[in-house]
Design a protein around this nucleic acid. Structure first.
Length: 416
RNA sequence: GUGGGUGUAGCUCAGUUGGUUAGAGCGUCUGGUUGUGGCCCAGAAGGUCGGGGGUUCAAGUCCCCUCACUCACCCCA
């Protein structure tokens, strides 16, 4: 039987890798300007870390985690929890008042794959610990905005506030009462949701339910004084930075730890998936995981989704790998010489390749062409005897005789 | 977990009401050029027609089962 990658797990092949690099390099450069530091955390953590932070009865924890049951360890379904663990474990709050961290890496969720959704996928994860300022919320959104803008990707930003442990229960009661009045008109899923997580009913995409909840009470009208001021300030600061946004009072987040501000960068270019980047505030999370009482906020950006967006408006014009020189050899003696020459030139920082299988010159020239070689050097026994060989410019087709000893210096000059 | 769609060469896909030896384009290899890439021309290699079973004189084609992929629901980045 043929060995294949697991369903939902994908190889990222050379053709695509340039796009990935561009995304990652762009991210690192923008994040540096925003004064963030990169960290790398393990992919495996104790199962409990995720069940406690994400929420024991969320879909992620309930049925989507890759867990080694016997060992009670889990492959991370998201990065925030791991980063919080690391923050607490290394007492980072003592290093400086505000920590600005990011990480890039694979996440694992056992969901049914579809467009823009895989079981192993990659996220850029950005977190700021130690500040409750609404300015920070706005700053992070402007960061997200910048990440997209510099790649030439268009998205729109939606924001909402979910309140806090002080005001959410009150809103929840009001909402529940509203829903119960209309329970019969809601879909089966929503009837189930109304018990478990009534906020989710607001998020239902079915026409019928949407009509029902149109008049539903909005969280924003039930925010406590603190949350209300915070939200107003977030909006004011977004306007100050001229970041365009829309308030979406139906936006709900899937993870339990979010409070106050939540936001999503969305697009209509990804099939059924709309979110390319999403996040929010989680002021109680660190404390809940056994750390100090420190506020936090962060977001995750889906790299696959971003790459999909980039693919749509970009012709893949970049070559896979360019080399400076391809050495075409004829005969055993020349092959020895070429092999050694290649080794030496590489040692001097030049990108060099040759054929190792004794193929015909024609075939070797073809290889040189496909490798995107700038020059090809043709070496046979006569050339070795004369210590002179033709160097072909692969673009113009012009050939010049070159002293074999001067190849390195010629190429170094030519490629600068 | 639930639905729909699609499985034929390395890739993209044709394949008629069931009928001889299953095709094309691209890619690969060889040659046209004794030692020269791209363009052109000629040729070659490459297939358990996803797998299993059934109907039939005859199945890539019809039926059943199964697997894989994919899109969508759910949920999410």
């Amino acid at each position: 039987m043929k060995i294949k990658a697991l369903n939902g797990f994908k190889d990222i092949l050379p053709d695509e890798i340039l796009l990935w690099r561009r995304v990652e390099e762009n991210a690192r450069s923008v994040l540096e300007r925003f004064h963030f530091a990169e960290v790398r955390v393990p992919v495996l953590e104790k199962t409990e870390l995720f069940s406690r932070s994400i929420g024991a009865d969320t879909d992620i924890v309930e049925k989507e985690m890759y867990t080694f049951v016997d060992k009670q360890i889990t492959m991370r379904p998201e990065a925030t929890a791991s980063l919080m663990r690391s923050y607490i474990e290394h007492s980072m709050h003592g290093l400086r008042p505000v920590q600005r961290l990011f990480t890039i890496g694979p996440m694992f969720r056992h969901e049914r794959p579809q467009k823009g959704r895989q079981r192993q996928f990659h996220q850029l994860d950005v977190e700021v610990l130690g500040s409750a300022s609404p300015r920070l919320d706005a700053e992070l959104m402007s960061l997200g905005d910048a990440l997209f803008a510099e790649l030439g990707v268009t998205t729109s930003l939606e924001i909402n506030s979910l309140g806090c442990p002080a005001c959410r229960p009150g809103y929840r009661r009001v909402l529940l009462a509203f829903i119960e009045e209309r329970l019969d008109n809601l879909c089966e899923d929503c009837q189930r949701r109304s018990v478990r997580n009534p906020l989710r009913v607001l998020d239902c995409k079915k026409q019928g339910c949407r009509r029902q909840v149109e008049e539903a009470p909005s969280v924003i009208d039930y925010l406590c004084e603190g949350c209300s001021v915070h939200f107003t300030e977030v909006r004011r600061n977004l306007e100050l930075l001229e970041v365009e946004y829309k308030v979406n009072k139906f936006m709900v987040r899937g993870l339990d730890y979010y409070v106050r501000t939540t936001f999503e960068f969305i697009t209509d270019q990804l099939g059924a998936q709309s979110a390319v980047c999403a996040g929010g505030r989680y002021d109680g999370l660190i404390e809940m995981l056994g750390g100090p009482k420190i506020p936090g906020i962060g977001f995750a950006m889906g790299i696959e989704r971003l790459v999909l967006l980039l693919k749509q408006h970009e012709e893949q014009s970049d070559k896979i790998a360019e080399i400076d020189l391809f050495i075409a050899g004829l005969g055993e003696e020349a092959a020895d010489y070429s092999f050694k020459l290649m080794h030496e030139l590489r040692g001097q920082g030049l990108r060099v390749a040759m054929d190792l299988d004794g193929k015909s010159l024609k075939s070797q020239m073809k290889q040189a062409d496909r490798a995107g070689a700038r020059y090809a050097l043709i070496v046979g026994s006569q050339e070795l005897a004369d210590n002179q060989a033709p160097l072909r410019d692969m673009e113009s087709g012009e050939q010049t005789e070159l002293n074999l000893d001067s190849i390195a210096s010629f190429l170094t000059d030519a490629v600068e």
